[in-house]
Structures are given as structure tokens and as C-alpha cells.
Design a protein around this nucleic acid. Structure first.
Length: 918
RNA sequence: GGGCGAAUAGCUCAGUUGGUUAGAGCAUCUCGUUUACACCGAGAGGGUCGGGGGUUCGAGUCCCUCUUCGCCCACCA
């Protein structure tokens, strides 16, 4: 595709230019586009992107999440799967509405000033103009999603799916309208689900109040509360039926201070005799537990706090709220009521109290439990199926420990409040006849209802919208065409494979997707949930806008390149482990990634300039006898790297049918191990050893051997780039395009994932001796401070049959270690340094005049002492009959062999030390 | 209150069913600009695997316990 001037490649990798050059080409050539028709011949591999909020701005959490997904999808794309990564955005009801409401506030307006239709139109305009920018930002980090399928939870298509799901669940008897206490955010003006009302620990106060007996005000019952303002809505005081202190008071009436209401003392096991006074005030409309008590006892349920958090008589509260308190904010009312209670002598005492208070997950306002009408989904039947697929192995969660959390949540699942009293979202598809005399019940409908089917009068649609998560839980199939079950994409790509996300939304989203998938599609939407860690700063605090400890991924892309960003994410990513980044020192966090790219670039720059553009032979077609020890070694290392990468990443899907076997269940998705294996190959093996060993051959005149060297080199680098492509796609593409064997018009992004060769008898073991020898000579040189430029003599002493083979390595060893290498059958002795290598080979470096006999003796003695200690332990083990009897025979055999070798080494060392002594 | 996880080199972490002399990256120290790379190369130092106890021929790995930290869940007013 490009015909580069290999001699003029810049010394440093130009990330910005490469990204700008290649991303558009990939998309233009449809590299990321999946095709349902091809799934007849290729296994589909599907990841649905967790849709970011449509108004979101890219942060490191997105960077991590999408890098992981991209690595997996690029891996499978190369492995010849029909890989689909389906992107999109979430309309994020409350969050998006809040953003626009803030804009309005600047203009001095509220959404009510605009009215519903104009407000929704305004949000839509806002989203159309500025929303979804995050998807473009994802492109900047190299995300290879199939943008042609970009979905949106509030699109017309997905709206159809949402209605279908609602209506079908209603038909199944799982959607119902309930009148009960729900979590209410008075700032957002809506109810919230249990998951959206987050506990945060706070230190409040516990107020002890005394309610006098109606018949004898000198006696009374003391109750404790953290929310004294709710006392206006108290309808009873509950005591334990078994509590001797109160047994005779059950059935009596108490006088509620301030408003003088008479409330009964009731017996209910909800009251815990061991806590506080053992008596608990009951406010059914403003506490979920109290609501249950109220239901059991048929108590009235006065609502005394309205939707805006203002204290007033809202419902069934006649006379309960004194005029003086009406219209006060709930917290202001608290202060007033406490003062009034104190004045009335009803405040026994106040003490500090640490407890958890629910807050709105969108705006952090203290949640008010409030009785109201809401739509609910009965979750238990759905949860049963979601539990079943985990138990059967059709679904697994990594890291495995999250499976217990998932099970625990599903087993204790409660009904899901899906209605929200906001305007931005899917309208509840229920219509009511406006004719008060008509018998028509609420109409739950897939299609808009224009008139009452019974009286043909006017109808009005339910005012509420649905929880955003009610659209996102359908995401794995609504994005593929559901409810049209004949949709080609749905048939080809459902169920998907892996879901990649953070543990925070396990309940919000993941569990619910599983439930929806099992209910509507009869299959879980994926077989693997991969929960990655959280991006944190150096103090282990979660990165967040409010803490100001965030890192903008686009800054990193600009300063270090997208590949460096991705490398940092992946290389540090142990399974489920948090990623620690330093917002005050980008260099510390991202230089390893950049350095790796620079290194890779320079490996390529040198290698390509030596290999050139002339065609190379296929390695498989080369006569094996022409391969040098180094050639055989690097080919073997490549095979090992491929095996290691495969083992770290896979299996991609359950091998046997649709369920994971116990053996497979915890395997794969070890991204850091994968990155490590690939890096080790290209840097520590290919560059550090093979390239260095090869230099003389590459600079030699043209000939058969140079052709072999070129072929092996090109092949090894090609393999390395393929292994690295999923992590660092830009630089991999740029370099791969310059390899002579790369086909015209091909992209590494869709090239084949490398396969390890079948075991070859031509082993690379000899080159290990070469490396041993080189390292030993270098060690001696460093130890004795030999002038770096000086050449030394080095002798390899081997009395066994390795001599002839070692002879072939003399030149390589010499050039790598700056040594004149000779071979001998016996150690001539003399003033020399000795290093024992493997297989009985000795390395002798005569350093006449340089050697310090005392120092050398100390060094050898240290080595011997250490070895003898290990040997003693080993021989002790071998002398233990229990060990030889019980340990696996193969292990015992290996230990025996080891003992023999160590004994020999010890003897060698002793002999040398003795020689130095004389 | 219940459940779960973590504690291994100065830092961030690997260590697959118990079985080589416990590894990597970064950091540190020494040396080096020899024709790919100083964002590099060569060499080195550094860990009684949180404490204690137990099982076992053998424990970083399994069990108990303690300490510290973290996460999830929960109606104790």
C-alpha cells in the first residue's frame, strides 16, 4: 500500500500522523463492519458497547472500558470470527434532563415554564446537536466499533422495543401499578429505583421523643427517630408483642405532640425490643418499613411531604400539619419541629448517630421515602431464569467472585420501580379514558391510543416516563432489530459473547440484561461478563470530576498517542484489578506505553531497512537445514509467544455447546498476561537477542544465508505485529504495511491471527547455550570492570558431545559479548574467572593482570555456599522416604537429576576454589 | 449487621489444580553513546510472600485465628 523510504523513517514514532492516516482508511474499507450474511461461514463474536450517556464526555473509565472491548474484538476479528462491536449511546433520562434544566436555570426558567412538549423538543435539539460526541472521542483511541450500526436508546427503533417489552411484561402479569412507598428525589422531581438511591454514610442525630399516653399524660412512650419532621405523619407506635414493658399499653392511645393527633400503640414484631426504647414510631407514608406495618394493621397513611420536599398536607393528612409549619422545606421543618418539641417538653434527648442515608445517584439529594403511585416490574420470575443460566454455566462472570454478588442480589430481588416523573424518556404506554363514567380500564398498548375503545371519548396517556434502564436492559437485542424476530442481525448476532463493564453497574444493567435476554429471547445475551477494575489516582480514589483528579484521555492521546494510552490500560490490567494512574504525573503513567511504541518503532525501522522491500521466502518453504540455531530459536519463541497469548486471552467461547465447563470457566481474558507475552517476544527475544545475533548476517553480502535471515526476520516481526495489533493497532498497522510480504491492500486489522507451528524437531535449544555464554561473559566483564570497548578471551569447556554444536556459535557469542571464543575439553586453569553454565559447560575467562584472585575466590565461595545450602535441602528431601513414597514419581526423578547436577556444580566450584588457594 | 476480596521487592502487580533457587514493569545503583532505539543497551542490589497456629513428604498457594485496608448488600427506628 505504501512504499516507504525505509532509510528515512523518523527516529521517533509519529503517533498523531499515524492515527490520522489509518483510522479513516479502516473505516473507508469497512474493516469494522460486520455482516450477518458472513456468519454462515464464520463464527459470530459479538460485544455490545455499554452505551455512554449521550451527553457524556470521555473520561478514563470510558478509555479503559473501550480499550478492553477493542482489544477483544480486534483479537477475534483476526481470529476469523465475524466480529461485531455494536456501539451506541444512552438517552440517560434524569441525567440529560438535569443538564438541560441547568441551562434553563441560567435563563431564569424551569421546565414548567416551557411546558412538556417544548421542553422535550429542547432536550432533543440539545442531544441532536451536542450529543454523541463521545462516540467520536472513542474513535480517537482507536475503537473499532461497527459505527454503521450505532444505536441510541431513544431512537424510534428502540422505542418500539421498549413498548413491546412493557406490553409483553404486562401481558405476562409482570408489570403492575402499585401504591407504595418509593424513593423520591425532590430535586429531580421523580421516583428512583432501589439501585438509584445510593447509601452514603453520614453522621446525623438521633432524636428521642416522648409521646404521652392519652389517658394519663404523666406516662408515655419514648421513641427514637433520625427524621423528627415525619412525626407529623405518625399514625401509631409499634412495640414488640413480647416486650413486657409495653404489653399493657398495646391498644392504648398516645397523644402526638404538636398536632395533638391520637395514635394507637400496636404490637408488631417489626419493633426490636433490644433497640433503643423498644418502641418505634410508625409513619407509613414516609418509610418503606413503616408502610408494611401500616398495611398489616390497616392504618391510615397521611402524606405530609410533597414532591418538592415541602411539608404540607398532601394526602389523607387532614389537620396533621399545623399552619405554622406548612410550606416549609423538610429540613427547615425539622429544625422548627425540634424546637417545638423541645418547648413542649417532648424532646427527651438528642445524640449523634452514624447511619446510612440514601441519596439520589444523579444529584446527591437526600432521598425522601414517599407514598405514591408507580409502575413496577415483578422481578422474581425474571430473576429465576437469570440465576438458572449462571448455575448451568451458560453465563459466567469474571472475576468469579462477582458471581456470588450476582446470585445474592437476584435471590433477594425486589420489584423494580420503572416509572419516573420526569419528561425526558420513553412515555409509559398506558392510556386512560378521560370520561369519568366510562368503565374502560387503563389501556396498555403497543400503538398510540387515540380514543377510548369503549366510549370513543378522549384518552390521555400516562404522564410518567420509564426508567432509562428499562430501555438499556434490552440493548443486546433491541439494537439488532428486536422485536422483529426475523431480523437478519438478530438471527445472526444474538446471543452475543462478552460483556465488558465495571462492577458498579452489575445490578443496574448487567443482571437486568440477563433477565431481559432470558425472558424475551430465551437465552442470556452473552456467555461472559468481564468486570474490569476502576481507574483510580495514586491515593486510590476513584477519578471523578468533583475531586478534580481526572485525566482526559484525549490529552493522553495528544501527548503520548492512542497506542500508548491503550498499552498502559492493557499492560496494567490484571483480572478485575483497579488501574492506578497519576493525574499529576502523566509521564509516570504513560511513558511506558510511549516507550514501548518507540522501541517497537525502532525495531521496525532497523529491521525493515535491513530486510528491504524485495520479496522474502515463506519460512515454511525454507530447507530446515539452512536455519541457524538463532533462526530455530526465534521461530520457537514465536510459537511460544502465540501459545502464551492464546492461553491468556482465550477460550473465546465455551468449547462444548452453550455452557462453560468447570475447567474453562475461570480461564481467559488475562489482558496483562497477553500484553506481557507479546512484549516479551518482540522486545526481550526478537530485539534483544535475535536482531543482535543476526546483524553480521544482515550486513553480509547477498546470498542464500542472508535470504534465510531476511525471511525469518520478516516472519518473526510479522508474527509479533499480529500479536500486538489488538493492543497497539496504529503502530502495528503502520509497520506491517512496510513488510515486504504484506499483500497489497490488506490491513493487519483484519489479517489472520498467528498460529503456532506444529512441534518442530529442529529445536532452538542450542541458542540457549549461546545466550548463557554471552550473559556469563558480560557478567564477568562487568564484575571486573573490563573496558567496554576491549575484547576478551573466553573459553567454553565442554567434555560432552556439545562441542561441535557450540563451535557453530563461537562467532555469535563473540560478537555479542566482544570476546574471542575458543573451545576446549578441559579447563586449563590459571588466573581466570569461571562461570558454570547448563549441561556441564564451563565458561572460562582468562583475565591475566586484571583478575583479582581474592575477589574471584569470594565470589565463587559465595556461589558455592548458596548452592550447598540448596543442595542440602534437596538431598534432605530425597532422603525422606515419605517424600519419595508419596510425591509424584516424575517429580522425584526430576529432583534426583537436579541433585546430581548441583553436586557436580558444587564439586566444580570446590575444585576451582582449591586451585585458587594454591 | 451480613457477605466477599485483598495483604508478595521502595511502588504497581503476576504467581493457573500445593511441587525448580518466588517473577515482571517502574524505581534504585554501576557501566556504556559499537553503524535501530539514551523513550536505549549491559550488569547489579533488593522479598523470613501481613502476624500466629494447623494440615501435608512438601504451603506464597489449603484450613483456623488475629491485624490492616477495600468492595458489595442491608428497613434497626
Amino acid at each position: 500500500m505504501t512504499s516507504p523510504d525505509l532509510n528515512s523513517l523518523p527516529q521517533n514514532y509519529d503517533a498523531a500522523a499515524t492515527q490520522a492516516a489509518w483510522y479513516p482508511r479502516w473505516t473507508e474499507h469497512g474493516v469494522f463492519t460486520a455482516d450477518a450474511a458472513r456468519t454462515t461461514e464464520h463464527e459470530p463474536f459479538v460485544i455490545v458497547m455499554p452505551p455512554p450517556n449521550v451527553t457524556a464526555v470521555l473520561h478514563m473509565g470510558h478509555g479503559l472500558n473501550n480499550t478492553v472491548q477493542d482489544v477483544l474484538i480486534r483479537w477475534r476479528r483476526m481470529a476469523a470470527d465475524e466480529a461485531l462491536w455494536l456501539p451506541g449511546t444512552d438517552h440517560a433520562g434524569i441525567a440529560t434532563q438535569n443538564v438541560v434544566e441547568k441551562q434553563l436555570a441560567v435563563e431564569g426558567q424551569t421546565r414548567f415554564d416551557l411546558g412538556r412538549q417544548p421542553f422535550v423538543a429542547r432536550v432533543k435539539t440539545f442531544v441532536d446537536h451536542t450529543g454523541g460526541e463521545i462516540l467520536n472521542q472513542l474513535k480517537a483511541i482507536g475503537s473499532s466499533a461497527d459505527w454503521s450500526r450505532t444505536a441510541y436508546t431513544f431512537s424510534p427503533e428502540l422505542s418500539v422495543a421498549v413498548r413491546e417489552a412493557f406490553v409483553r411484561l404486562h401481558e405476562d402479569g409482570l408489570v403492575y401499578k402499585g401504591h407504595r412507598v418509593i424513593h423520591w428525589c425532590s430535586r429531580c422531581g421523580t421516583s428512583l429505583s432501589d439501585e438509584e438511591a445510593e447509601f452514603t454514610e453520614s453522621t446525623g442525630k438521633l432524636y428521642h421523643l416522648r409521646y404521652p399516653l392519652a389517658i394519663d399524660p404523666t406516662r408515655g412512650i419514648t421513641v427514637a427517630t433520625t427524621r423528627p419532621e415525619t412525626m407529623l405523619g405518625d399514625v401509631a407506635v409499634a412495640v414488640s408483642p413480647e416486650d413486657p414493658r409495653y404489653v399493657e399499653l398495646v391498644g392504648q392511645e398516645l397523644l402526638l405532640p404538636i398536632n395533638g393527633q391520637r395514635i394507637p400503640v400496636i404490637a408488631d414484631s417489626y419493633a426490636d425490643p433490644a433497640f433503643g426504647s423498644g418502641a418505634v414510631k410508625i409513619t407509613p407514608a414516609h418509610d418503606a418499613s413503616d408502610f408494611d406495618v401500616g398495611q398489616r394493621h390497616g392504618l391510615p397513611m397521611p402524606v405530609i411531604i410533597d414532591a418538592d420536599g415541602i411539608v404540607r398536607e398532601v394526602e389523607a393528612a387532614g389537620g396533621r400539619v399545623p399552619d405554622a409549619l406548612r410550606g416549609l422545606d423538610r429540613f427547615e421543618a425539622r429544625t422548627q419541629i425540634v424546637a417545638m418539641l423541645e418547648a413542649a417538653g417532648a424532646l427527651v434527648r438528642v445524640e449523634p448517630h452514624a447511619h446510612n442515608v440514601r441519596h439520589c445517584y444523579r444529584c446527591d439529594t437526600v432521598v425522601e421515602p414517599r407514598l405514591s403511585d408507580q409502575w413496577f416490574v415483578r422481578m422474581q420470575p425474571l430473576a429465576v431464569r437469570a440465576l438458572g443460566v449462571l448455575r448451568s454455566g451458560e453465563l459466567r462472570i469474571l472475576p468469579e467472585r462477582w458471581e456470588a454478588v450476582y446470585v445474592n442480589w437476584l435471590e433477594g430481588i425486589r420489584d423494580w420501580n420503572i416509572s419516573r416523573q420526569i419528561w425526558w424518556g420513553h412515555r409509559v404506554p398506558v392510556w386512560y379514558c378521560t370520561n369519568g363514567h366510562c368503565a374502560q380500564t387503563p389501556i396498555v398498548s403497543r400503538d398510540d391510543v387515540i380514543s377510548c375503545p369503549t366510549c370513543h371519548g378522549a384518552v390521555r396517556q400516562d404522564e410518567d416516563v420509564l426508567d432509562t434502564w428499562f430501555s438499556s436492559w434490552l440493548w443486546p437485542f433491541s439494537t439488532l432489530g428486536w422485536p422483529d424476530t426475523a431480523a437478519p442481525d438478530l438471527k445472526a448476532f444474538y446471543p452475543g459473547d462478552v460483556l465488558v463493564t465495571a462492577p458498579e453497574i452489575l445490578f443496574f444493567w448487567v443482571s437486568r440484561m440477563v433477565m431481559a435476554g432470558c425472558w424475551f429471547m430465551d437465552k442470556p445475551p452473552f456467555h461472559t461478563v468481564y468486570l474490569h477494575g476502576t481507574v483510580r489516582d495514586m491515593e486510590h480514589r476513584k477519578m471523578s470530576k468533583s475531586l478534580g483528579n481526572g485525566i482526559d484521555p484525549l490529552d493522553v492521546v495528544e501527548q503520548y498517542g492512542a497506542d500508548a494510552l491503550r498499552w498502559t490500560m492493557v499492560a496494567g490490567l490484571g483480572l478485575g484489578v483497579d488501574v492506578m494512574l497519576d493525574p499529576n504525573d502523566l509521564e509516570k503513567s504513560f511513558s511506558p506505553g510511549r516507550n514501548f511504541c518507540t522501541k517497537l518503532w525502532n525495531i521496525g525501522r532497523f529491521l525493515l531497512s535491513r530486510v528491504g522491500t524485495e520479496p522474502v521466502q515463506l519460512v515454511s518453504s525454507i530447507d530446515p537445514t539452512l536455519l541457524t540455531a538463532a533462526d530455530r530459536w526465534i521461530l520457537e519463541r514465536l510459537d511460544q509467544a502465540i501459545t502464551d497469548c492464546d492461553a491468556a486471552l482465550g477460550p473465546a467461547r465455551p468449547a462444548q455447546g452453550e455452557a462453560w465447563s468447570a475447567a474453562e470457566r475461570a480461564r481467559g481474558l488475562r489482558l496483562s498476561e497477553y500484553a506481557d507475552a507479546a512484549r516479551r517476544f518482540v522486545w526481550n527475544e526478537l530485539a534483544d537477542w535475535y536482531l543482535e545475533a543476526l546483524k553480521p548476517r544482515l550486513y553480509a553480502p547477498a546470498g542464500e544465508d542472508r535470504e534465510v535471515a531476511r525471511a525469518v526476520l520478516a516472519h518473526a516481526f510479522d508474527g509479533a505485529l499480529r500479536l500486538l495489533q489488538p493492543i497497539v493497532p496504529f503502530i502495528a498497522e503502520a509497520l506491517w504495511q512496510m513488510l515486504p510480504q504484506t499483500p497489497e491492500g490488506a490491513f493487519i486489522s483484519q489479517a489472520a491471527w498467528p498460529l503456532a507451528r506444529a512441534a518442530s524437531p529442529a529445536s532452538g535449544a542450542l541458542f540457549e547455550h549461546t545466550r548463557d555464554a554471552v550473559q556469563a561473559i558480560r557478567q564477568v566483564r562487568a564484575e571486573y570492570h573490563v573496558n567496554p570497548g576491549a575484547w576478551v578471551d573466553a573459553m567454553l569447556v565442554s567434555s560432552n558431545g556439545l562441542t561441535a554444536q557450540l563451535d557453530t556459535q563461537r562467532e555469535t557469542i563473540g560478537s555479542l559479548a566482544r570476546a574471542r571464543v575458543t573451545l576446549a575439553a578441559t579447563n586449563p586453569g590459571g588466573a581466570s574467572a569461571l562461570v558454570l553454565l547448563r549441561d556441564g559447560i564451563e565458561l572460562v575467562v582468562p583475565l591475566a593482570g586484571m583478575i583479582d584472585l581474592t575477589k574471584e575466590r569470594t565470589r565463587l565461595q559465595g556461589e558455592r555456599d548458596n548452592l550447598e545450602k540448596q543442595l542440602a535441602a534437596l538431598e534432605g528431601r530425597l532422603a525422606n522416604e515419605k517424600f519419595t513414597a508419596k510425591a509424584p514419581p516424575a517429580l522425584v526423578e526430576a529432583e534426583r537429576a537436579k541433585a546430581t547436577e548441583w553436586r557436580a556444580r558444587c564439586d566444580h566450584l570446590c575444585a576451582k576454589i582449591a586451585e585458587l588457594d594454591t
